[in-house]
């Protein structure tokens, strides 16, 4: 069972995760308007910038984060921004959007000019996240856990980061047991997605380069 403190932590994290998201008018633009390739590029770039800004706001709310060394805060955010962005996008693809919206979004991304070799693993990742049927709590906690990865480049005080990440992992483990009692492997599967995220992160620079070139 979850302790009172753990329950409080969950509702706090979920609340922060829901509150800090890409502005709705920007997301709507992506669904409603027709753009040429250049406008598409600018819109997706604008969304990526906005994503980083809301990610920072969410991260400031993770208990203990602001007590970390300032440069370590930057190293953690820099190291995780791309992974957190993929996680957030995966959530969009997991949700039941109004009819046709998922297709419009997918089509827009597919036509963005990113080369196919990067597109396939990205949509495979979205699909594999979708199959896990994660609850909001799991998304929010997994995002926090991703951000609080002590092994990111340039992190000086790894132990301080570990001390923040560990209780999150414990809460996520319990949430998985409670939410998915039929699937004892659920928690391990979630952690497996983090490995997949690292691979996407690793290829992200090349992916951006292929996008810029096209």
């Amino acid at each position: 069972e979850l302790s009172q403190d753990q329950q409080a932590l969950i509702s706090y994290i979920v609340d922060a995760h829901n509150k800090h998201r890409i502005p709705q008018d920007m997301a709507k633009k992506l669904l409603q308007e027709q753009f040429n390739a250049e406008e598409n590029f600018l819109l997706l770039t604008e969304m990526a910038t906005s994503h980083v800004q809301v990610l920072v706001e969410f991260t400031k709310n993770i208990p203990g984060f602001q007590s970390l060394d300032h440069e370590d805060q930057i190293a953690l955010l820099k190291g995780s921004a791309v992974e957190a962005m993929f996680l957030r996008s995966a959530q969009v693809f997991t949700k039941k959007l109004p009819n046709g919206h998922t297709e419009v979004l997918e089509d827009r991304i597919r036509r963005s000019g990113i080369s196919e070799e990067f597109m396939t693993p990205m949509f495979n990742f979205y699909k594999s996240i979708g199959e896990l049927q994660m609850m909001q709590e799991e998304h929010a906690l997994l995002t926090a856990i991703t951000i609080l990865s002590p092994d990111r480049p340039y992190v000086k005080d790894q132990q301080a980061v570990e001390r923040l990440q560990e209780p999150m992992l414990e809460v996520l483990r319990k949430v998985c047991k409670l939410q998915h009692p039929q699937e004892p492997q659920h928690f391990a599967r979630l952690l497996g997605r983090l490995t997949e995220l690292r691979t996407l992160n690793h290829h992200h620079a090349e992916m951006l380069e292929s996008w810029r070139m096209s």
């Binding site: 600018l42 770039t45 910038t49 980083v52 920072v56 805060q73 930057i74 955010l77 820099k78």
Partner: peptide
């Protein structure tokens, strides 16, 4: 400056200081 010319670290630093859209 438009978003696409600002590096990731610059966006993070600004957001950490609570400054958006300069």
């Amino acid at each position: 400056a438009s978003g696409n010319t600002i590096g990731l670290e610059a966006i993070i630093r600004k957001a950490l200081m609570g400054k958006y859209d300069e």
